[in-house]
Computed example of a mutant assay.
Amino acid sequence: MTSRMTRPVARRGRLSAAGPDVRLLPLSRRTPRTAKAVSGVGPVRTCVGCRATGPRSALLRVVVATDAAGVPALVVDAGRRMPGRGAWLHPDPGCLETAERRRALGRALRNAGLLDVSAVRRYVAEQQGMSGPGQIPAS
């Protein structure tokens, strides 16, 4: 009982005993450590098709919406502001096909049923057609 009274108790916690360099470590294992991510590119998202990461501005957001008949369908969220869970995808037909083949869109959007992908496919085809003069438009 006397030892408790004579020993001062630090109220600062365990980090103060670890030293000043502890706070310079990354916050978690998932924190990007690349110079590109640290330089302020912006939010980084993962494509559900190819699983590559990229800036939010380079990927396409897709959400589930119901049509007039009540059937769920994928819709392109061009403004990136629609409510609900979204999935991110490169505006590339290859990534869309890979995501469909792997059934990644349904998993990412947490939707168990089949989804109509025709609106997303049309949007990606239009983007490929407008991508530049050197490209052959998709038909």
Rank of each mutant, 00 (worst) to 15 (best):
1 M>F: 05
20 P>H: 10
22 V>Q: 02
30 R>K: 11
31 T>Q: 14
41 V>G: 02
104 A>F: 09
74 L>S: 01
38 V>A: 15
92 D>I: 02
19 G>M: 04
77 D>E: 03
132 G>I: 06
137 P>T: 10
87 A>D: 07
75 V>A: 05
17 A>S: 13
132 G>F: 12
72 P>K: 06
57 S>Q: 13
91 P>E: 12
54 G>T: 12
122 R>Q: 15
82 M>K: 05
30 R>F: 08
9 V>A: 06
55 P>G: 15
57 S>M: 07
42 G>K: 04
20 P>S: 11
92 D>Q: 12
75 V>Y: 01
63 V>E: 02
13 G>E: 09
14 R>K: 07
106 G>Y: 01
78 A>D: 11
43 P>K: 06
25 L>Q: 13
122 R>E: 15
70 G>E: 11
65 A>P: 00
44 V>Y: 00
139 S>G: 15
70 G>W: 12
97 E>Q: 14
107 R>A: 14
42 G>W: 10
89 L>C: 08
124 V>W: 04
49 G>V: 02
80 R>W: 01
92 D>F: 02
117 V>Q: 00
14 R>H: 09
20 P>Q: 06
65 A>K: 09
48 V>Y: 02
16 S>Y: 07
66 T>N: 11
70 G>T: 13
107 R>H: 07
131 S>I: 14
50 C>D: 02
112 A>P: 01
19 G>H: 08
56 R>V: 07
94 G>S: 09
8 P>T: 06
134 G>K: 08
66 T>V: 10
74 L>P: 00
119 A>W: 03
121 R>A: 15
41 V>A: 12
19 G>W: 08
7 R>P: 01
35 A>I: 03
49 G>D: 00
11 R>E: 10
84 G>W: 11
47 C>R: 12
77 D>H: 06
39 S>Y: 04
74 L>Q: 06
33 R>A: 14
39 S>Q: 07
64 V>I: 15
34 T>C: 14
53 T>H: 08
50 C>Y: 05
45 R>H: 11
91 P>T: 14
34 T>S: 15
42 G>V: 02
43 P>S: 03
64 V>T: 15
